[in-house]
Amino acid sequence: GYRKEQERLGIPYDPIQWSTDQVLHWVVWVMKEFSMTDIDLTTLNISGRELCSLNQEDFFQRVPRGEILWSHLELLRKY
Rank of each mutant, 00 (worst) to 15 (best):
G1M: 15
G1C: 08
R3H: 10
R3Y: 07
R3Q: 12
R3W: 10
R3I: 13
K4I: 15
K4V: 12
K4L: 11
K4N: 12
K4S: 13
E5Q: 04
E5R: 01
E5H: 05
E5M: 05
E5D: 05
Q6F: 07
Q6L: 15
Q6M: 13
Q6P: 02
E7D: 15
E7I: 08
E7Y: 05
E7N: 07
E7F: 06
E7G: 05
R8P: 03
R8E: 11
R8F: 05
R8G: 05
R8K: 13
R8D: 07
R8Y: 05
L9G: 04
L9V: 13
L9S: 07
G10P: 00
G10R: 10
G10I: 03
G10A: 11
G10Q: 14
G10N: 15
I11V: 05
I11L: 07
I11W: 06
I11G: 02
I11D: 01
I11A: 03
I11S: 01
I11F: 06
P12D: 05
P12Y: 03
P12K: 02
Y13G: 09
Y13A: 10
Y13T: 08
Y13F: 14
Y13L: 13
Y13S: 13
Y13C: 08
D14V: 01
D14H: 08
D14R: 00
D14M: 02
D14C: 04
D14W: 03
P15G: 01
P15V: 06
P15Q: 01
P15F: 03
P15M: 03
I16P: 04
I16H: 15
I16Y: 15
I16K: 13
I16W: 13
I16R: 13
I16C: 15
Q17V: 09
Q17R: 14
Q17G: 10
Q17N: 11
W18R: 01
W18S: 02
W18T: 00
W18E: 01
W18D: 00
W18N: 08
W18H: 00
S19V: 00
S19P: 02
S19N: 11
S19T: 15
S19L: 01
T20N: 15
T20F: 03
T20W: 04
T20H: 12
T20V: 13
T20I: 09
D21R: 10
D21T: 09
D21M: 08
D21F: 04
Q22R: 00
Q22M: 06
Q22F: 02
Q22V: 00
V23G: 00
V23N: 00
V23T: 11
V23P: 01
V23D: 01
V23C: 04
L24Q: 08
L24K: 12
L24H: 15
L24N: 11
L24S: 09
L24V: 13
L24G: 09
L24A: 10
H25G: 07
H25K: 05
H25Y: 14
H25L: 08
W26K: 01
W26Q: 01
W26M: 00
V27D: 02
V27H: 02
V27L: 07
V27A: 14
V27Y: 07
V27G: 12
V27T: 06
V27W: 02
V27I: 11
V27K: 04
V27N: 02
V28T: 15
V28P: 01
V28Q: 15
V28D: 15
W29R: 01
W29A: 03
W29L: 02
W29D: 03
V30R: 03
V30F: 05
V30C: 14
V30D: 02
V30I: 10
V30L: 09
M31T: 15
M31Q: 15
M31C: 15
M31G: 10
M31P: 00
K32I: 03
K32R: 13
K32T: 14
K32L: 04
E33S: 10
E33Y: 06
E33M: 05
E33I: 02
E33V: 06
F34C: 11
F34W: 10
F34H: 15
F34A: 12
F34P: 03
F34M: 07
F34L: 08
F34Y: 14
S35R: 12
S35G: 15
S35Q: 14
S35E: 12
S35N: 14
S35D: 15
S35K: 13
S35C: 12
M36Q: 10
M36V: 13
M36Y: 11
M36I: 12
M36K: 11
M36E: 12
M36N: 07
T37R: 12
T37D: 06
T37L: 10
T37G: 14
T37P: 14
D38Y: 06
D38W: 08
D38P: 14
D38S: 11
D38F: 04
I39A: 07
I39S: 06
I39M: 13
I39H: 11
D40V: 04
D40G: 06
D40P: 09
D40N: 12
L41T: 11
L41G: 08
L41E: 08
T42W: 07
T42I: 07
T42M: 11
T43H: 08
T43V: 11
T43N: 12
T43G: 14
T43C: 14
L44A: 03
L44W: 09
L44C: 05
N45A: 14
N45I: 06
N45L: 07
N45V: 09
I46S: 00
S47I: 06
S47Q: 06
G48S: 02
G48Q: 00
G48W: 01
R49L: 11
R49V: 10
R49Y: 10
E50M: 06
E50F: 07
E50H: 07
E50A: 11
E50L: 07
L51V: 03
L51K: 00
L51C: 01
L51E: 02
L51Q: 00
L51I: 04
C52R: 03
C52L: 10
C52K: 01
C52H: 03
C52V: 09
C52Q: 03
S53R: 11
S53H: 07
S53A: 11
L54C: 04
L54F: 12
L54E: 04
N55E: 12
N55C: 09
N55R: 13
N55I: 06
Q56W: 05
Q56S: 12
Q56V: 07
E57R: 10
E57C: 11
E57K: 09
D58Y: 08
D58C: 07
D58T: 11
D58M: 14
D58K: 09
D58V: 10
F59N: 02
F59H: 01
F59W: 06
F59K: 02
F59R: 03
F59C: 00
F60K: 12
F60L: 15
F60Y: 11
Q61Y: 07
Q61C: 10
Q61M: 13
Q61S: 14
R62F: 07
R62E: 07
R62L: 14
R62W: 05
V63A: 11
V63E: 03
V63S: 06
P64W: 03
P64K: 08
P64E: 06
P64N: 07
P64F: 03
R65K: 13
R65L: 08
R65T: 10
R65Y: 12
R65E: 15
R65A: 14
G66Q: 02
E67Y: 07
E67D: 08
E67F: 06
E67C: 07
E67H: 14
E67W: 08
E67V: 09
E67S: 11
I68D: 05
I68W: 09
I68K: 14
I68C: 11
L69C: 03
L69A: 05
W70L: 04
W70K: 01
S71C: 08
S71V: 09
S71M: 08
S71G: 14
S71P: 09
S71Q: 14
H72A: 06
H72Y: 04
H72S: 08
H72Q: 15
H72P: 00
L73S: 01
L73V: 04
L73P: 03
L73W: 07
L73G: 01
E74H: 15
E74V: 07
E74F: 05
E74A: 11
L75K: 09
L75C: 12
L75I: 15
L75Q: 10
L75T: 15
L75M: 12
L75D: 13
L75W: 09
L76D: 01
L76R: 03
L76Q: 04
L76G: 00
R77K: 14
R77L: 08
R77Y: 04
R77F: 01
K78E: 12
K78I: 14
K78N: 15
K78C: 11
Y79D: 15
Y79V: 10
